[in-house]
Write a protein that binds this DNA or RNA. Structure first.
Lengths: 150, 150
DNA sequence: TTCTTAAATAGTAATTTTACTATATGCTTT
DNA sequence: AAAGCATATAGTAAAATTACTATTTAAGAA
């Protein structure tokens, strides 16, 4: 049964094409893995999903394309001590994350502090802002409970 | 000639002691390396500085202590594609950074968007915020010029 | 000071991420 | 449809980061 293509992956492909990047089966697969699969996969998990369809894809290719897509704003990268996570950027749903430093649990928070003032401040210094990272680190409910019991 | 101890490093040691962590020569050296040496050193660079005084210190020890200090808010970690950078947190000078994705150049920007509203929003979800990351990524003046010339 | 003990370390291994190179392939032009 | 070419890939190597274990050591108690 053919899986329906989600809009975010399609828009990602369109942007790649517009920017002059080639549309390869590997790139399609990476985008589809992010779109269809589980939330916040690591690079390894993306590779595993991709290999179900294309067994010969290399880890290097996954990393190279994730990095490219992060740079283009198609994909969001979440820094975590035990393996970074990736997430498809849903157009019109810009947001950030709560990351538990104990168990790695990651969830969205619909907040963003970015504004023109900040960008102008950077521009004054000759800096062209192409992206930003804003994440909360701390303890999720489950880990707070466990630590309190000690 | 005895080097004068800087206040930030001293406060870091004090916090470690308060929290029950042991004061080891390695921890002193890591703090002094961050305080005295060059700006935004990588873990490798911290190790090199530390080894000038204590040649047998292991890389593991440097990483372990940097991570500990980041968790305690003594040290700030800056995520960069080619090697993360570290910075002593100067009490009373909370700030964030501009990071050039082309050359890695890093500079401070005296801005922070964190506020009570955000923390309360996280608390509603059972999440205890212990830290946050807010960084700008883009191109510095020098790299913008080089890319324009192509 | 000496003793005790939990925490920290050095050394090493494992994992994650990035870099390199020869080959293959998507895209444009013919 | 075929050719040319710059880009992308697989495979591998290198570098950065995290984890593991036996030994050492800082800090409090006797």
């Amino acid at each position: 049964m053919e899986r329906e293509k989600k809009p975010a992956a399609a828009q990602g492909l369109e942007l790649l094409r517009t920017k002059g990047y080639k549309i390869t089966p590997q790139r399609r697969a990476v985008l589809e893995a992010l779109d269809g699969g589980e939330q916040f996969p690591t690079a390894q998990q993306v590779l595993e999903i991709v290999r179900k369809q294309q067994p010969d894809v290399s880890l290097d290719t996954v990393y190279r394309n994730l990095t490219l897509m992060v740079g283009l704003g198609i994909v969001h990268e979440i820094y975590r001590s035990a393996g970074n996570a990736y997430e498809m950027v849903e157009p019109g749903h810009h947001h950030h994350h709560l990351v538990c430093t104990a168990c790695g649990k990651t969830e969205c928070i619909d907040i963003c502090p970015m504004n023109k003032i900040y960008e102008k401040e950077a521009e004054k210094r000759g800096f062209l802002v192409t992206g930003h990272v804003f994440e909360f680190y701390g303890l999720c409910w489950s880990c707070r409970s466990k630590l309190a019991k000690k």
